[in-house]
Design a protein around this nucleic acid. Structure first.
Length: 764
DNA sequence: TGATGCTAACTTTTT
DNA sequence: GTTAGCATCA
């Protein structure tokens, strides 16, 4: 166990063995950064530092989990469990959860993801009678987010002349008011958005010196991963937390700073040396990941940036293959090329699917690759895009759980109050809102006194029933675990039944997704407690945790043999034997948004640098002459970044159509891709067509005559004018609104029929 | 109230 | 090319 230092080079050892005082590690791509960080933590623990006194912050859950695992391996015991390792957001959420009352929040505060946040913005914009075409929720939210990341509260926002000028110039002078209303609404709902987890953490430490002191004395050693991606809020928090012991170790690479759009500032790295006396700086410049060729290209490209810390990455690795530059006619051809190349490489060089990654600038580019991979029967997995937790059925289910835990949360309450439909319509909800405003109370409180809202009859009793139901779940919360509560919710709200009844392909998938969610809750409740006093197995802690989970964190099939597709941003920190960096076109990469500003353009270049340095053995850079964007074909020039790669490192054997040497091949590819590919309809459409084909048109029997809705009962065989014959599986609703669920024959599946409108005849 | 069909907006990147 | 959100219809 003592030999954990053996595998390190001199520089790495220097960083690991530095015990006390501020330390900055400038770690080039592939220079063993994680190894140094984890070994250093293990080393600290070997020298008597208690795991409970070490805090390590990362940007992704995945990075945190990996660090923990590696430390455990080095130490060979379970002490690593006591380490405080997590993402900024999750660690701060945990601390805020413990201290929430000081800030006037419930301990079980809800965390809003960006979709939740945008819908709050939207409802505020409409409350203020503003046009949401002009005050677009996404724009407004970004603006608020940027303010929070810069630690600017609503008051400061309104007083800042520069910001006010900006808003005046964009003709959105009321942004400050929206921000203020948004903050108030979130507070009233007992909810924090992602940025609040930083912003409120900062507020907590500033306003409550005793809280600050507590955590300052708890965390003797603080380590920060990906320091180049920290923003002002994170910077200030770290500075405060570390002020007593000054044992702060930051690891970063200015060349890989790719999150300035989210408020990150490289300035934090450059500033570090000035913030503390006697900062030890260690540069890790030996790359263990990539071949010479790949590294040369990376160095050449990044050299075009003016703003950077001087360093030269080098490697002992072999020269390797040249970088393959590929030009295709269209985006579909690009997809086809990559799938072909993967097939070829697997055959020739015995690579496995999981050795490949396709990296693109925007999520929207995934389509053509998915299609071609499917056509070639290559299994793949897409990271990013719509995450599991953003799906409607999951959000609906989670909305229930959130409201049970935190009934103040009006947004989620409104989402579920009439789903599944229980007769609490728009007008009833409106009346409750108005009554809540006049009585100066919350929506939830108002629901307890239907009389005061002026609602009576069916609406009032429906509300009463809903409230009773929700309260019974809240009671369960005290005695039963998260899974039992969730299961009861699924059962008693009709949520699961609703999905179960839908027998379409999508319906089945939705049903399975909900089962999957229940499984994950079960897993959560059954996994034994790990670290720290702040972690519990309640539904509340489950909800906070999953909101901070990303698609990329779902590493269940981490080792499954599939090709991965993701954005370059999502690939940061990962490595693959074979990398396809695709879509190298002007306006796409670099993005059109970045062309007018030197620093934006340099960030795009760093992004390309990140893409290149993911590759261990082989790298392809591809671009298409034309591609579909917004539904129409656009022509793009090759990316300027391609011109920055010296010719001597490039293999242009395949240069596509209408070009010199057009008939060449890639790494011995026999097939020329010049020929136009046979047009195959997209698989999704094909699948849809197959799905939809069977439902044959029904010709009603000659004596067709609709029967009285009230005569319909479960079990009856009926004939529908259009859908033909079927059997009634359930009937609901009163005289004016009677609905029958009918299982039809002939591919029509199950349908809900409004008996007042539809023509239905009883067969027997 | 739910299904359907049309339009408009959408594309940076993420915790 | 895709999808969310709406207006319309039954």
């Amino acid at each position: 166990m003592q030999d954990y230092l053996k595998g390190l080079n001199e520089k790495q050892k220097e960083a690991v063995e530095h015990l006390d005082g501020p330390l900055m590690i400038v770690a080039g791509a592939g220079s063993g950064k994680t190894k140094v960080l984890t070994t250093r933590i293990a080393h600290l623990m070997q020298h008597g530092v208690d795991a409970f006194n070490i805090l390590a912050l990362t940007f992704t859950n995945k990075a945190a989990a990996e660090m923990k695992e590696r430390i455990e391996k080095i130490l060979g015991n379970s002490e690593a469990r006591n380490l405080y390792i997590g993402t900024f957001h999750s660690v701060f959420a945990r601390i805020l959860r413990a201290e929430a009352n000081k800030l006037g929040y419930p301990n079980n505060f809800t965390i809003y993801d960006s979709d939740d946040a945008k819908s709050v913005v939207k409802s505020i914009v409409s409350d203020m009678n503003l046009d949401d075409k002009h005050y677009k929720p996404a724009y407004v939210y970004n603006r608020i987010s940027a303010a929070k990341n810069g630690l600017i509260d609503p008051r400061a926002y309104k007083q800042d002349t520069f910001i006010q000028q900006e808003d005046a110039r964009s003709n959105r002078p009321l942004l400050g008011d929206i921000y203020e209303a948004y903050a108030m609404r979130c507070f009233r709902n007992g909810a924090m958005d992602f940025d609040d987890l930083l912003f409120k953490m900062y507020e907590l430490l500033v306003r409550f010196p005793e809280v600050l002191a507590k955590y300052q004395h708890r965390f003797h050693y603080i380590l920060i991963d990906e320091y180049q991606d920290t923003n002002v809020a994170q910077y200030q928090i770290i500075k405060m937390l570390g002020a007593v012991h000054e044992n702060i170790c930051v690891v970063g690479d200015d060349a890989q700073s790719i999150y300035s759009f989210r408020g990150a500032t490289v300035q934090n790295i450059l500033q570090f040396e000035e913030d503390y006396d006697d900062v030890k700086v260690v540069k890790l410049e030996q790359n263990y990941r990539s071949t010479q060729s790949i590294l040369n290209v990376a160095n050449e490209v990044i050299a075009n940036n003016k703003n950077q810390i001087k360093k030269e990455l080098w490697t002992d690795n072999t020269a390797g293959e040249k970088i393959t530059l590929v030009r295709t006619q269209t985006d579909n051809d690009e997809g086809r090329f990559v799938a072909d190349a993967i097939t070829e490489m697997k055959l020739r060089n015995h690579y496995a699917n999981k050795d490949f990654v396709i990296l693109y600038r925007t999520n929207a580019q995934s389509r053509s690759f998915e299609e071609s991979l499917r056509r070639m029967n290559i299994p793949y997995r897409l990271l990013g895009g719509v995450s599991f937790y953003q799906r409607k059925e999951i959000k609906d289910f989670l909305a229930y759980l959130r409201v049970i835990v935190n009934p103040q949360d009006e947004e989620n309450l409104k989402r579920i109050i009439n789903y599944p439909a229980r007769g609490i319509g728009k007008t009833s909800i409106e009346r409750v809102i108005i009554a809540a405003n006049t009585h100066n109370t919350t929506f939830w409180e108002m629901l307890h006194q239907p009389a005061a809202t002026g609602l009576k009859g069916a609406a009032a009793s429906a509300i009463e029933e809903f409230v009773t139901r929700m309260k019974s779940f809240q009671v369960m919360l005290e005695k039963q675990n998260a899974y039992d509560v969730a299961f009861a919710v699924g059962k008693h709200t009709g949520l699961v039944q609703e999905l179960y009844n839908d027998k379409s392909v999508e319906g089945l998938a939705r049903y399975e997704n909900v089962q999957e969610l229940l499984n994950s809750i079960k897993e959560f409740t059954e996994t034994p407690d790990e670290e720290g006093e702040l972690r519990e197995k309640t539904l509340g802690s489950y909800l906070q945790q999953i909101t901070l989970l990303t698609d990329a964190d779902n590493n269940k099939d981490e080792n499954s043999d599939v090709v991965k597709l993701m954005t370059i941003h999502a690939a940061k920190g990962l490595e693959f034997p074979c990398v396809f960096s695709v879509g190298l076109e002007e306006n796409l990469f670099p993005s059109a948004m970045s062309l007018y500003d030197r620093s934006d353009l340099e960030e795009e270049r760093r992004l390309f640098y990140v893409a290149i340095t993911r590759a261990k053995e082989r790298l392809w850079v591809t671009y298409a002459n034309s591609r579909y964007r917004f539904g129409n074909l656009v022509q793009n020039e090759p990316s300027r970044f391609i011109d920055e790669i010296p010719e001597k490192y490039l293999d242009r054997t395949f240069t596509g159509i209408n070009s010199r040497g057009a008939q060449g091949s890639v790494g011995g590819f026999g097939k020329s891709l010049n020929q136009s590919f046979d047009k195959v309809p997209s698989l999704k459409k094909l699948a849809d067509k197959l799905q939809q084909a069977p439902p044959a048109e029904h010709k009603p029997t000659s004596d067709f005559k609709a029967d009285d809705p009230m005569a319909m009962e479960v079990g009856m065989e009926v004939e529908h004018l259009k859908f033909g014959f079927g059997k009634i599986t359930s009937v609901e609703g009163g005289a004016n609104n009677r609905i029958a669920t009918v299982q039809f024959q002939g591919g029509h599946g199950q349908k809900k029929i409004m008996l007042n409108y539809a023509k239905i005849r009883i067969v027997k």
